[in-house]
Design a protein around this nucleic acid. Sequence first.
DNA 1: CCTCATTCTTGCGCTGGCGCAATAAAGCGC
DNA 2: GCGCTTTATTGCGCCAGCGCAAGAATGAGG
Lengths: 232, 232
Amino acid sequence: MIDPADLAHLKEIPFFQRMSDSELRKVSALARARSLEADEFFYLQGDPAEMLFLLKAGRVKLIQNSADGQQILLRMIGPWSLFAVVALVEGAVYPVSAQAVEPSLALYWTKNALMELVREIPGLALNAMQMMSERVQEYQDRLRELATERVERRLARALLRLGSQAGKRVPEGILIDLPLSRQDLAEMTGTTLFTVSRILSQWEAQNIILTGREKVIIRFPHGLVRIAEDLP
Amino acid sequence: MIDPADLAHLKEIPFFQRMSDSELRKVSALARARSLEADEFFYLQGDPAEMLFLLKAGRVKLIQNSADGQQILLRMIGPWSLFAVVALVEGAVYPVSAQAVEPSLALYWTKNALMELVREIPGLALNAMQMMSERVQEYQDRLRELATERVERRLARALLRLGSQAGKRVPEGILIDLPLSRQDLAEMTGTTLFTVSRILSQWEAQNIILTGREKVIIRFPHGLVRIAEDLP
DNA sequence: CCTCATTCTTGCGCTGGCGCAATAAAGCGC
DNA sequence: GCGCTTTATTGCGCCAGCGCAAGAATGAGG
């Protein structure tokens, strides 16, 4: 189900680290593929966590909703990133929803396949643990940032992170290569689209960035770094 | 190193779930103990993560610091809770500091012991993953709360959580049984000690709680629930 | 090319919460 | 019991950021 060219990619992913070729073949034999149009969901928050996904192409938003309809954007997934690692846990439900923001293609493994893999590949559970532990640390950092820093800093950091994950060199600078509305940025940084719009306008006036409809181009990363690090 | 009476406790802990008696004996044979006075640290943020702890008695704060000295209080650990699960991950450093808030006694396993246990007890890595995945979910929830809810709600929720973790029935209501300053509450909810003090004073006037120096007693949990749930 | 929906901008008023400072209360050590 | 340190309270001024509303820009689809 995975074409051989993909195997090389698989080897780069932390989750599949330190696996023999025969183990990797086993992994790829059990994979299935699913493709989604923009705005469709791979899964919804609260669904039983029955599949682990590996994005091959496209972009996916991980969104968390509260009971009263508020939502935040926890993470943007790009190609060759794994998501829904929680599917490895017995009886879990997805804690977030995963929505394609552009046409996307993902490989996935079902719960049954995963249980088989975990049984036969001893290192897999440890690799998964490592991924989760990185996630825990990231969220701890973000909690501290959200609790102690102002919007400008958080927004600067968010743009820098997006730039390094989804940045694409264009003549004017680094384009964040995904449809990214002010509302999205607000939900990533814990503020409102109005505040995001105001701050971006200000940065545009200072020539740090260049904006458009659902588009941000970073002209001078240093400018953002200075704001993110709270330098003079 | 673990006295037999403790074995019963061990069996209740998710991390040691589904283990045979011989496996549990193995676990307890490799445990060591460490006791700390109030305010001492089990470990500091940034130290190589070389031990996994199980608190037997006392209370421990998990604190995260930023480069510029800001800090937040991520979690209060009580007896028979495991902390520093990150020690299971290759090459990790502690992402937080762990400070005893009262005289405390903990069992611990060194990196070597853990590697031996993981090798010999197949389910251990899966159990650890489960713990981490719960942690990830908790932090995702808290990120959303911090991003979208006001201080009052977050504070009410924090008190309710503390009440259920460390609550002790006293004549006047439920005492949160640990030294808990306004500053601590501020660091848990992402606000300032001034705001916490003002809100607690207000709640005290409404007879929802009863406060003292480093002390909170919940008189009418329902009052807090109403605030936490944002009801009329 | 025109329409229409969506996204973005910006002015305005407002307020939740911050931060300081002064004071009070509580507990600890001797 | 008396200082002294630590913790908590509260008044006051202030401002970062919110939220609405009106209008402008953008792009998609016929």
